[in-house]
Design a protein around this nucleic acid. Structure first.
Lengths: 216, 216
DNA sequence: TCCTGACGTTAACGGTGTTCACTAATCTAA
DNA sequence: TTAGATTAGTGAACACCGTTAACGTCAGGA
């Protein structure tokens, strides 16, 4: 395959993903259909099989892109703060995480909702996505590592770490991750609306409590 | 309509929901289809419109039933403990919440995942479900009210309460709700598997930390 | 007894993912 | 330059899906 046709191919793939993205935004994860993508591109549906073996693959690819996009958004706000303000950078990234999710509800549903067809199938397919998810998680672990080095991380019982990360940091990260993942997704999926109109206060209170629990 | 035919009608509705439930378990939320339900019942799909105006209504009804089932499961383990052991009852219910979700992944995806078609549509439809969700939340609020009466609830800044509940209890409940909703759903949806093989340790550590933070 | 209403049917419309056979164009190599 | 191989795309078809409409059929109540 020549470079020229490879470029052209990459361009088509990008166009497919763009069309799928706009369908996702307009109609939610279930609104993504090969026929609609093809229609928007002025093409027939079977042609898309030259680029993706199935609809699932396209959705998976899209999810990977979205993870990268979210990570870049968080890194952007992080980099506006001094490199040694680890707490401030963490807070900014968590706030941006929430802001991005709340302004990209459809995308968040795809990324953080339950796996679509069968639970097992998704796990087998998403090794690439795991990598993108890994990178996203890592931007939160980094400041925690720095805080740990300064002895400022309040650690409880440490779990066995699966990565090349001190067990205390790993444990602390998992607890915070689950806490804010849950808070943000509950709000985004509407599972908090029965209890509270605007979850901002709750979110900020949690953030404040975590911040204050950091030793200085 | 006579009582006899009403009974017959209720029986058919129950059969429809049972078929839908088994499809949900077998193939996930997306596996629920009117045609498959009808096929399993030895009937044609349009006949189902005598009982539900659309597929969404059936799914909504199913979700309501599931909320009730989950609440009853939690209440069952709660009632095995002394009525004055509020902390113990809370722990037992949270553990049962997690156990039920992990053993009913498809049901949990339907109940706690992102709303299926459009976010707004779901909110308008789910007033009954809100009620069932309300009842579910209430079983956790009750022990907290009891603990609060004993002055054992560690309260921070209190949010404005939307219910006939002391603001401190309301605030504490929301924080714990989001924390464990998030932890359990992250695990159930596989969004923790990149970081940890078995989240039991993490879950129990969080539970222990919360328990120990309760004043006595 | 009639007849009304509930229950179920078949047929159809438009939508979906996916496969297959085929054409047209483009790129590669002798 | 020309012949062959690869690629992109098409159209028809299959098997699903939700939903609507028109049509039977049968039990219950006046």
């Amino acid at each position: 395959m020549s470079d020229r046709s490879q470029k052209r191919r990459d361009l088509t793939v990008a166009e497919i993903k763009a069309a799928a993205r706009s369908l996702l935004v307009a109609s939610g994860p279930a609104g993504i259909s090969l026929r609609a993508v093809a229609r928007d591109m002025g093409i027939t549906a079977p042609a898309l099989y030259r680029y993706y073996p199935a609809l699932d693959s396209l959705i998976l690819d899209l999810a990977t892109d979205l993870h990268v996009e979210l990570r870049l958004a968080c890194e952007a706000v992080r980099d506006e703060l001094p490199a040694d303000d680890h707490v401030g950078r963490l807070i900014a990234m968590v706030r941006e995480f929430r802001r991005w999710v709340l302004t990209h509800l459809s995308e968040a549903a795809l990324m953080f909702g339950p796996p679509l067809p069968g639970v097992d199938e998704f796990h087998q397919q998403c090794e690439d996505l795991t990598h993108a998810g890994n990178q996203f998680g890592m931007i939160f672990i980094e400041p925690m590592l720095a805080l740990h080095a300064q002895g400022r991380l309040p650690v409880r019982d440490a779990l066995a770490s699966q990565f090349d990360i001190p067990a205390e940091v790993y444990t602390y990260f998992l607890a915070r991750w689950a806490q804010f993942y849950g808070l943000i997704m509950a709000e985004a999926f509407g599972h908090l609306s029965w209890a509270v109109d605007d979850a901002t206060e709750l979110f900020e209170a949690e953030l404040k409590a975590v911040t204050e629990s950091l030793l200085r």
